[in-house]
Design a protein around this nucleic acid. Structure first.
Length: 108
DNA sequence: CGAGTGACTGCCA
DNA sequence: TTGGCAGCCACTC
């Protein structure tokens, strides 16, 4: 186990998170808190963000935004990628979650 | 072991 | 609608 015994979180958490993000269809977005909740850790939204930052390029982490619909400030390409999938942004620079928020289990 | 930091969230003025 | 504040957890110094 590379992970030290001091870790309070299961090592499988990151693997589950990556699979979850892969389930997000193009043209939809999810929030950090939403993913954290699906993982059974509603308070770990910040951890989700950290894991996504360390996530491999195979993960469409650009489909994850904050609860306000705000994209990563230091990641200008994220907005470009989302727009390329059909996601529209509001004048204030935030995603219109009301229309593009991913709904697990719902038909596309 | 304490303090600071961060791809966050929800409540309140 | 916008902005400020506290709570949250893991990592780094």
């Amino acid at each position: 186990m590379s992970r030290t015994k001091h870790s309070t979180l299961p090592a499988a958490l990151d693997a589950e998170l990556y699979e979850l993000v892969r389930e997000i269809p193009a043209g939809s977005v999810a929030t950090y808190g939403q993913l954290a909740r699906l993982l059974g850790r509603p308070n770990h939204a910040r951890l989700v963000g950290r894991l996504l930052g360390r996530a491999p390029s195979d993960i469409p982490c650009h489909r994850v935004v904050s609860a306000s619909g705000r994209t990563v400030a230091a990641w200008s390409a994220q907005r470009t990628l989302l727009e390329g999938e059909g996601v529209r942004f509001r004048p204030n620079g935030a995603v219109d979650l009301r229309s593009f928020l991913w709904r697990p289990g719902a038909p596309e």
